[in-house]
């Protein structure tokens, strides 16, 4: 654990709650850090960081490819596929690409060696530098069904910079892509709005991180009144409220123009620096309490 980077995921039950605001600003106030945008359907962290020296990697998946001549129509591949990605029509397997999980089982199983593999590009990853922040962005090609292969690749290189914290900007919601994004993190930050609707979404992600046994804390964004349903929920569930980000015109304006508040104004730098300290304290506390993690 000590040798690896601390990985912190930023989640919320819906879009527009403030995941990118929080993760971009936290990464900026950390002395040296990595920011990974796992919201591969609509990544926007790079708009804030405007990284330099960007290099691009294509992400491919493997799909079974049939040699019609060799296929005997035994149907073993179709019956084997637990994802039901193969149908058996007119004595030949027929692939539903978007249902296939690229497990390769059918290829291994085929007694006639009629199934080979072909590569398909599903998206790409851009890596660059913004000041001392290493910025990685996953981008899924339009029309693709799953961002999982891109997220796997994004996170596989997340340990490269020793000691520097890694901030993972998750996709909204609590689906498979979020699970993939948080499964190896040390801590989860749940961003919530102080409304009844916000609580509904907070509940979804809280259930998810509890399922994954991840320590977590809540950031109440767009905070404008002392008592609110989100904090009531946190009290009820005994979740720590890490910080309240004010319902602040200036912060909203800076953020809406894809500028990084903590890099522009001292008061925001202080706000996110103290938030980072609170988060790091929690992470230290958690790793000390559960050293096996």
């Amino acid at each position: 654990m000590q040798n690896n980077s601390v990985k912190i995921a930023v989640l919320s039950g819906k879009g527009g709650t403030g995941k990118t605001l929080v993760s971009v600003n936290l990464a900026s106030v950390a002395e040296k850090s990595a920011y990974i945008d796992c919201d591969v359907e609509e990544p926007n962290g790079h708009l804030f960081f405007k990284p330099q020296n960007v290099c691009e990697d294509e992400i491919t998946i493997r799909l079974p490819a049939l040699d019609n001549e060799l296929c005997s129509g035994c149907r073993k591949c179709v019956d084997f596929c637990r994802f039901n990605a193969l149908a058996f029509i007119k004595k030949r397997p027929f692939l539903f690409e978007e249902v296939c999980h690229s497990c390769g089982g059918c290829v291994l199983l085929c007694p006639e060696k009629a199934l080979g593999e072909r590569e398909k590009t599903v998206g790409y990853i851009k890596r660059g530098l913004s000041s001392k922040v290493k910025v990685s962005t996953g981008i899924m090609n339009t029309g693709e069904a799953s961002g999982i292969p891109i997220i796997k690749k994004l996170l596989s290189g997340a340990d490269s910079e020793k000691g520097a914290p890694v901030f993972i900007d998750c996709p909204p919601g609590s689906s498979c892509v979020v699970m993939e994004s948080i499964k190896d993190v040390d801590y989860c930050i749940l961003v919530a709005e102080p409304t009844v609707f916000g609580v509904h979404n907070l509940n979804m992600v809280y259930k998810l991180v509890s399922l994954f046994k991840k320590p977590c804390g809540v950031i109440v964004n767009k905070y404008f009144e002392e008592d609110n349903p989100a904090e009531e929920y946190c009290r009820e569930k005994n979740i720590q409220v890490l910080c309240r980000l004010p319902f602040d015109n200036e912060l909203g304006l800076i953020n809406s123009q894809a500028r990084i508040a903590a890099r522009e104004k001292d008061k925001y730098k202080e706000l996110f620096t103290s938030l980072l300290e609170a988060v790091m304290e929690e992470v230290q506390h958690e790793t000390a309490a559960n050293p096996q993690r």
């Binding site: 039901n84 990605a85 249902v99």
Partner: peptide
Amino acid sequence: AQGGAGIKAAQ
């Protein structure tokens, strides 16, 4: 089925 129920039912 976890996924692909339509494909399997059609099969």
